[in-house]
Design a protein around this nucleic acid. Structure first.
Lengths: 145, 145
DNA sequence: TCCCTATTTTTGCATTATCCAAACATTAGG
DNA sequence: CCTAATGTTTGGATAATGCAAAAATAGGGA
């Protein structure tokens, strides 16, 4: 019972601390991205050009939020909207040269941040942690139906 | 490596889904509280009247955020600011009758939500999950120093 | 008592994330 | 063609969070 209550509170607290920490390290490293913008960039770095809809699906945000993320990334000159040649409703989001250029450094910084954060946690516990995260998300999805 | 990347993404996703789900269930149950406002109310229900600073410490938010939470809860008539008699800088936050009255129902709804969400997850995995959440938070705190 | 500093909270201002509903452009199916 | 569906944008709203400065009060010396 006590345990269950911790889940709700702690997920919220960890998420806030994590976002704040990422913002702070990114800033000190000269990386001008919010946590959410990083999620988008990371998706593009890993999987290349894709539609806003695919991005929304992968990072599990709604389309309005993604529109805004892309707006901000476009303002920063990191991505471009390219109208799809076979379906003109679709925007393909393409990394700009600047967006490409920051890939390696930013990914390294992100990996370092996460390594610092999981310091002292066993591989096994980490596996369980991710498993529970996924299961909880699935459960929430199922509750919607 | 893949595992570590999941941590950052999944914590963000779970937190969003959780907040959204709580908002939706609270709404359908006629409970007019955001997730953060609930954290404040729950703290007051459990520990009684306390200062904004103590609340901020317990729910791990900064003082500005807490000021806003209390503003909104006060507007809803759920809490009152009571100036401390021995130190007039301090506001003691006290539950109103309405704030008290919603306690049992709201706590039950919250417990039900969390039980639904951890459905199918073993007690042991849940313990590990909470342990990792706490450890990760601690790690972030230590990185600040 | 008076001054300086520390503490608790508020204010003002800004950014960001998120939501909803409606609009828009385009495509696809009958 | 026309209608329905799809991908995206827009407008309008609330909320969380951050920073810096201000306001009110307390407390410790000189």
């Amino acid at each position: 019972m006590m345990l269950i209550k911790q889940v709700g509170v702690m997920v919220n607290i960890l998420n806030c601390k994590l976002k704040k920490h990422i913002a702070s390290v990114f800033k000190s490293e000269g990386i001008n991205l919010t946590a959410e913008q990083f999620l988008v960039m990371d998706t593009l770095w890993n999987q290349g050009e894709m539609t806003q809809q695919s991005i929304a699906y992968i990072i599990q945000k709604d389309k309005n939020s993604v529109t805004q993320f892309i707006d901000n990334l476009e303002k920063k000159g990191l991505v471009n909207r390219v109208v799809d040649s076979s379906d003109r409703r679709v925007n393909n989001i393409r990394l700009s040269k600047a967006g490409m250029a920051m890939k390696d450094n930013t990914k390294n910084v992100a990996i370092d941040i996460l390594n610092d954060i999981v310091e002292g946690i066993s591989e096994e516990d980490l596996k369980t942690f991710v498993k529970v995260l996924n299961k909880a998300c699935d459960n929430i999805e199922k509750l919607k139906e």
